[in-house]
Amino acid sequence: MNNQIIKNLQKHKEEVMYAWIEEMKNEKGEKFFQYMPEHLVEKTSREFTALMLSNIEEGEDVSDEQSMEFATKIVRFGWSISFINTAIDRFSKVVFKHLEREGVVNGENYSRFFELHLNWIEPLRRSIIQSYSLEWERTFNLQKIALQELSASLIPVFEKISVMPLVGTIDTERAKLIMENLLEGVVEQRAEVVLLDITGVPVVDTMVAHHLIQAADAVRLVGSKCLLVGIRPEIAQTIVTLGIDLTDFLTTSTLQKGMEKALRLTNREIKEVE
């Protein structure tokens, strides 16, 4: 029976693949198969079909290399674990219907097919999901590192004046990185005034304010002044409601106003040229 199934699926591989694509297109809330270019959908589907049939054709588990290679692609395309499970279930359903139509599976040998199915699909599912989890974790960590590096850089904008734009949520780990980059940058750039721009920080709570105050104190200890800029009305309201004391902070609502204040603190000003 195994040989029959293998030969039949090998012969009708394209038919099975296109039937599976149609199943996935009809899946509620599905985006990849509906909005991605046709050639990309077909290429990815061909790779998925080859992966799904690899262990049943060879009679052994799919290799880690195969599943990891496919996992790398689907992580990039935004497939979730739930979506992967759905894709595997739909593929299994399409294969069963096809073999039933072909007369390869019937009432007499259904129990044998069910046993074969369990030994084929479930190990394959575990292998793909394990590879996906490893690849997703690796990608997430790389993105996290890249975001931290991009959003905690001290940028010299004028002589003696530098800006650090902060983007995203500030947790303890990021606060540590901000502090390190801030102090190293101040010394290296010989900045007398530093602007911490929190325009891109969605929430300022007690913990975030504490980290910002620590950063300002550290800047003062190395002989520079620190301005907190980009305080939106909702952030100001939160700071007042929480009773956070920023009296030792020089603050402005925008980076532009902060830059004007920084220039005055370094005995300079902007003048229009006539």
Rank of each mutant, 00 (worst) to 15 (best):
N2Q: 12
N8R: 14
L9D: 05
Q10P: 03
A19I: 00
E23G: 06
K25M: 15
E27Y: 15
Y35E: 15
M36A: 15
L40Y: 11
E42H: 12
T49R: 07
S54R: 05
N55E: 10
D64I: 12
Q66L: 07
S67A: 15
T72R: 10
R76M: 08
W79C: 05
S82D: 14
I84G: 02
A87Y: 07
R90H: 09
S92K: 14
R101D: 13
G103F: 11
N106C: 08
N109Q: 10
H117G: 05
W120R: 02
I121M: 08
E122S: 08
R126V: 09
S131M: 05
W136Y: 15
F140I: 11
K144Y: 07
I145T: 14
L147S: 12
I155A: 11
I155C: 11
I155N: 13
P156V: 00
E159T: 10
I161T: 03
S162R: 04
V167T: 12
D171W: 05
K176T: 11
L183S: 09
E184Y: 11
G185P: 08
V193R: 06
L196M: 12
D197S: 01
V201C: 02
P202M: 01
L212T: 02
A218Y: 08
L221R: 09
C226P: 03
C226A: 11
Q237T: 10
L242S: 09
L246D: 01
S253C: 01
T254R: 04
E260I: 02
K271E: 12
V273I: 13
